[in-house]
Computed example of a mutant assay.
Amino acid sequence: MASSTPSRSEEQFLCSICLEVFSEPVSTPCGHNFCKRCISQTWDSSESCFCPLCKEVFSIRPQLKKNTFISEMVSQWKLEEEHRETQQMVKVFSDMESVQRCLDHHTKVMEQSLSKHKERAQALIQQLQQEMCELEKSSTEAQQLSLSTDPLHFLQRCPALPPAGLKDWSSVSFEPQTYEGSAARALSELEAKLEEEFKQLPSTLELRRVQQFAVDVTLDPDTAYPYLVLSKDLKQVHDTDVEKKLPDSPQRFTHYAIVLGKQSFSSGRFYFDVQVKGKTDWTLGVARESVNRKGQITVSPKNGFWTIWLRDGDKYRALAGPSVPLSPQRPPQKVGVFVDYGAGLVSFYDVDSADLLYSFTNCSFREKLFPYFSPCLNDEGRNSAPLIISAVETK
């Protein structure tokens, strides 16, 4: 089996019997380590005491001693896992604070705007009151003039009525900005953002967990369909309309645009990322070593394939025999593939959203498994983008 690339990955701290993180790790005389409970149960159920890894038989049941070094390493590793989860929680609450700052800013802008409208309204009211006073004064003078018996005096005063400089209020409009419902909308936006953050948190943590089992996968040219082109670093593959003259080895697929990974896995857990951006058709997953590589192939778990595909740009299915329609929230640009050999599990993730796309469960693995890639046909250039095995970004 290929080894995991991270030096401190969970793979190093798994008991080879239960495939879980060590609990009370103990060492056998041959130097291998197991959970105390697991090795004790193994020996209790067997007529002889032997190492489950190297099969060395012990004539006398050894006295198991706690492996202090591994125990401390496991404790440290658990703290680092917990640290990453804490960082994720901190990010969520940081986002909450960011939303609160936006809400505070919205409130401040609203208050400043209301203050400006209030000042303008008060100025208009003051001006209107002043003109009303002038009009009342003019009205009083007009009443007095109407009682005058001196025509000359009346004619001299009439041009001054009404008072000069009055504002044409017909052109004045005052429609203060309304904020009805603004607070409710802001709170609704805050609630939606927080709900989305908390909804995404479990899936994000789950993806980060399986990404700790990332392995370095490359393509195997000896298995590649003759129309496929592989990059020099064996990380990219796309289909062409030109058939290459290649030896028809037993490993090569001859009728379908398929290539397998060079690395094989027969235990433990492994994970890899594949970029599918720009493609209208693709198939990804894993295949067992003995799958049919010549002639007609039906891709299903029964025939040794655990895969999902995209067809026609928007039709996603898990090829579970019969196939299962999938409905991702958005078209995945990068797909993560995770396998737990011992648990019989194959899971697919949308790497960008951390959403689980599909899981094959209760699989029966008895052979080596190989990563499976099909960029599908070129389709006259519409599906010419390559599948790219990309480096796993663990945050």
Rank of each mutant, 00 (worst) to 15 (best):
N383H: 09
N362V: 06
S364K: 06
L369W: 00
N378D: 14
V392H: 05
Y372C: 10
K368I: 03
P371T: 10
S353M: 14
F373G: 07
V339W: 00
K334F: 00
G381A: 09
D340G: 03
F360T: 03
V346E: 07
D355E: 15
N383A: 09
Q333F: 05
T394W: 10
V351W: 14
L387N: 07
Q329F: 01
S359R: 08
D350M: 15
F338H: 01
F360H: 09
V392C: 12
Y358A: 09
P375I: 10
F338I: 00
D352Q: 13
F338P: 02
V337P: 02
I388C: 15
L356W: 05
P371G: 04
S390V: 14
F373A: 05
P332C: 06
S390M: 01
D355H: 09
K368E: 12
T361N: 12
I388W: 10
K334D: 02
P386L: 07
K395P: 13
S364E: 13
C376A: 12
S347P: 15
R366P: 07
D379E: 15
C363G: 03
K334R: 07
D350N: 15
G344Y: 04
V335D: 04
F370H: 13
Q329A: 08
D379T: 08
S390L: 02
L356H: 10
L345Q: 14
R366E: 13
F338W: 00
S364R: 11
Y349N: 13
L377W: 11
S364G: 02
N362S: 14
I388L: 12
D355T: 14
P386V: 11
Y341G: 01
C376R: 13
K334C: 04
Y349F: 15
F348N: 07
P332V: 01
T361G: 06
F348H: 05
Y341I: 00
L369N: 03
F365D: 07
L387V: 10
D352W: 01
Y358L: 01
D355W: 04
R382Y: 03
Y372A: 07
P386R: 08
A354E: 06
Q333S: 15
A354T: 13
F338V: 00
T394S: 11
K368R: 10
G336F: 02
V335A: 04
Y341K: 01
G381Q: 13
Y372K: 04
L369D: 00
F370M: 06
